[in-house]
Each structure stands twice: as structure tokens, then as C-alpha cells.
């Protein structure tokens, strides 16, 4: 309980009449690599977007690193978080987007250094050195001067990963990082994510449709369905011997 870096406590999220998260309870331990799988519209991405503070919540409490994310404790009661609180909490998290969301008017180098310089107040030289290391890590050391539109989708997503890492988050969120890629480019992105999972003590939360990959890198896999976790377990448990009928159906449909 105490080593949970992320904890969802009966979290409710609605879009109009649609309940996307239905009193969700969910925990991730520090350093854990967790994959979230499940049908479209099951609320998987919403979990990440709530953590990244891109979507608010309608009920319950989300804890990150022991503190409420969307609330602040003031005079003994939980009140909606101020922008200052959100800013402080946000610095613990980084996100890799399905559509990459690189800044098209900036070079690869500036995409990675802009936030460290403007937000963290790093010197330009230091930010560039760090960016070079990160580009090396994602295998794009020679692409620093290019603009995003000059890169392939797989390369863009690797820049996206480097950009998120440049802010030194302790939790990294991947929102279907390979779903927008041509099939032949998926591998290079998964290789980078896999290496990160292996070599770093980052906490990683991955929403994906790449079942084999989820199985390889995850400590735990959660099957989401209709706003709740239907089933969770180690990759072996969940993939070889799912106990829930819904999980079996889903896995059968997606693996065939």
C-alpha cells in the first residue's frame, strides 16, 4: 500500500451521460511497468490523461507519490487543486502521445530542449548535452537538426520519448505509442520502450494493443472493460490462463 506511486481511489470520470471510469480502484508501485489492455472506449487512455492532468475527475481521489493529484489538503479538507499544485504534481509525470504531438515549428533539438530551458530553467548548453544523450538513447543522434516533418513516424515517436524523458519524470505514460505507426515502424519504437523498461527504474504505464510486447516488458497487465479493471495479473497469468470470460473473449478476438 505505502509503496504505491499511483493510486486511484474510487475514481469516477464522465463525459456527458457516458461513465468512462466507474469507481475505479487502481494501483501502481514505484518502478513497476504496467500495461493496460482492453477494448476501445474502455477508459484506458482516460486513466493516463487524468494522470497527466489533461482531464479532470468527477469523483474519488487520485494519489501520485503520496499526494492527491486533483485535490489539495487545506485546513483539513480536500479541495480542488490549484494550478500551482497541478504544476508541481505534473513535473513528476511525462507522457508519450499516440499522435506524437511534436512541435512542428521546432527542430528535433529544440523540441527536446525547449521545456527543460523554459520550464526547468536549465542552461541552454546543459539542456543540449542532455538532449544529445537522450537522442543517442533513442538512436537518433544524427537527426538533431531536422524538423519533425522530415522524420518517419517511428523516428518522430522516438523524439517524443526523448522529449518526455528530458523533463526527468519519475512516471512515464505511454498512450498507444505505436497505434499511429505503419506496421514496419512499430518495432523500432517498441525496442526503445523495451530498453527503457529494462535499464531504468522509471515507473511505466503503457496503454497498448501490442499484446506480445505488453507480455514481454510488463510486470503486471490490467484488462480494462467498461470503466473498471476486469482482471489483472502477471503477463503469464493473464495471457495464458485468464479467469474472466470477458478477458478470454477479448484476447481471443485480438490474438486471432
Amino acid at each position: 500500500m505505502t509503496d504505491a506511486i499511483i493510486r486511484f481511489d474510487k475514481v469516477v470520470k464522465r463525459f456527458g451521460d457516458l461513465t468512462v471510469l466507474d469507481e475505479l480502484d487502481f494501483e501502481v508501485k514505484k518502478g513497476e511497468k504496467v500495461s493496460i489492455i482492453g477494448p476501445s472506449g474502455s477508459g484506458k487512455s482516460t486513466v493516463l490523461r487524468i494522470l497527466m492532468t489533461l482531464e479532470g475527475i468527477d469523483g474519488g481521489v487520485v494519489h501520485v507519490d503520496g499526494e492527491p493529484l486533483w485535490h489539495e489538503l487545506r485546513e483539513g479538507s480536500l479541495l480542488p487543486a490549484s494550478e500551482a499544485h497541478l504544476r508541481r504534481m505534473r513535473s513528476k509525470l511525462g507522457m508519450v502521445f499516440q499522435q506524437f504531438n511534436l512541435f512542428p515549428h521546432m527542430t528535433v533539438m529544440r523540441n527536446i530542449t525547449e521545456a527543460p530551458v523554459k520550464v526547468l530553467g536549465l542552461g541552454k548548453k546543459e539542456a543540449q548535452l542532455r538532449a544529445e544523450e537522450l537522442l543517442d538513447l533513442v538512436g537518433l543522434a544524427d537527426q538533431a537538426k531536422k524538423f519533425p516533418h522530415q522524420l518517419s513516424g517511428g523516428q518522430q515517436q522516438r523524439v517524443g520519448i526523448a522529449r518526455a524523458l528530458a523533463m526527468r519524470p519519475s512516471i512515464l505514460l505511454f498512450d498507444e505509442p505505436t497505434s499511429a505507426l505503419d506496421p514496419e515502424l512499430v518495432g523500432e519504437v517498441l525496442t526503445v520502450i523495451g530498453r527503457l523498461a529494462e535499464e531504468h527504474d522509471l515507473t511505466m504505464l503503457l496503454v497498448t494493443h501490442e499484446m506480445r510486447f505488453a507480455r514481454e516488458i510488463s510486470d503486471r497487465v490490467c484488462f480494462f472493460d467498461r470503466g473498471q479493471i476486469r482482471e489483472e495479473g502477471t503477463p503469464d497469468e493473464l495471457f495464458t490462463d485468464p479467469s474472466e470470460e470477458r478477458t478470454r473473449e477479448f484476447l481471443k478476438a485480438i490474438l486471432d
Binding site: 497527466m52 489533461l54 502521445f97 504531438n101 511534436l102 512541435f103 525547449e114 523554459k118 522529449r163
Partner: peptide, 21 residues
């Protein structure tokens, strides 16, 4: 909108997002 979301995820202030992104 996804440009604003990326900027928010990187913790840019609303003003920085407007003028830099």
C-alpha cells in the same frame, strides 16, 4: 488541441504555450 496538450504535459505555463507553441 494536441499541441496544447503536449505543452501542458511538459508543464509550460499558459502564457509560454501561447507565445512559444
Amino acid at each position: 488541441q494536441n499541441q496544447r496538450e503536449a505543452a501542458r504535459a511538459l508543464n509550460f505555463t499558459p502564457r509560454q504555450t501561447l507565445f512559444n507553441i
